[in-house]
């Protein structure tokens, strides 16, 4: 993924984000920004608040304090309808895929299409479903139930469902966790292909260093609830700080 330095438009900016659950301070004055067309990896160990962070971005968790701007709008002050409009443009790949168990693959993919109340004809919806499935190479699973699919296939279907609305920004929550190294590589190359094809900007949450090295234009480290360090993969790899070094061993 080429680093695009002449484009400096910000698509997401986060300032002074704080979130605690009871006495558990998860995010403490966290700052971050995402440029258009960039792939930003947020690296942090398990339980450091990575999922909480991106759920705040999409408005699933309400932070205690801070500002989150997505495509120029502060998501914390938006009305419900305006938030829905933002959510059309921001795709979210859930850590646990979040495929609807009671629906077929086709119904899973149609769900966001239908619910965001675009007036689509059945054949237009079909075309979009097949295009999304084609992007992840799983056209033949269209009438299967999620329970019939393997872990890697489920991840790809979840990715297809995220892609179906052609989002400008994609938030990946640990896309490779729980997959074997070969399947993980397949998912990573799929993510890169999508990035090339649709010119999306993305935030990738992970603790998988292979994934970091292959996808990151820039890496931010989430340690102790704040953005502890930021830089390219190579820069951070050279860092002398103990807490950063732990990740690169």
């Amino acid at each position: 993924m080429a680093r695009n330095s002449d484009h400096k438009e910000m698509v997401i900016t986060i300032e002074g984000l704080c979130k605690s659950f009871g006495a558990n301070m998860v995010l403490d004055d966290f700052n971050l920004s995402l440029h258009r067309g960039e792939s930003l990896v947020v690296l942090g160990k398990s339980g450091s608040g990575k999922s909480v962070l991106i759920k705040c971005i999409i408005g699933l968790i309400r932070p205690d304090r801070g500002i989150i701007r997505v495509l120029g709008q502060n998501v914390l002050t938006l009305s419900h309808d305006a938030l829905d409009e933002i959510r059309v443009k921001v795709g979210f790949l859930f850590q646990s895929n979040a495929l609807y168990d009671s629906m077929t693959v086709r119904e899973n993919l149609e769900f966001p299409l239908r619910r965001h109340s675009f007036n689509l004809t059945q054949s237009a919806a079909n075309d979009m479903v097949m295009e999304a499935l084609h992007n992840v190479g799983l056209e033949h699973t269209v009438d299967m139930m999620p329970a019939e699919l393997s872990g890697g296939m489920r991840k790809r279907i979840a990715l297809a469902r995220t892609l179906i609305l052609k989002p400008e920004i994609i938030l990946y929550d640990e896309p490779t966790t729980g997959l074997d190294p070969i399947t993980a590589l397949e998912i990573i190359s799929l993510m890169k292909a999508i990035h090339e094809k649709y010119r999306t900007s993305s935030i990738i949450i992970t603790h998988d260093m292979k994934c970091v090295s292959l996808t990151a234009d820039r890496v931010a480290m989430l340690i102790d609830g704040r953005c502890y360090a930021e830089g390219t993969y190579d820069e951070l790899k050279m860092a002398q700080d103990e807490k950063i070094k732990q990740f690169f061993q």
Partner: peptide, 20 residues
């Protein structure tokens, strides 16, 4: 059980971001 498993596998969150 249905809502519980939808909750823990983030399906409820997924609905929320899908305009529902």
């Amino acid at each position: 059980a249905e809502l519980g498993s939808m909750k823990v596998t983030e399906q409820i969150d997924a609905m929320e971001v899908s305009g529902t």
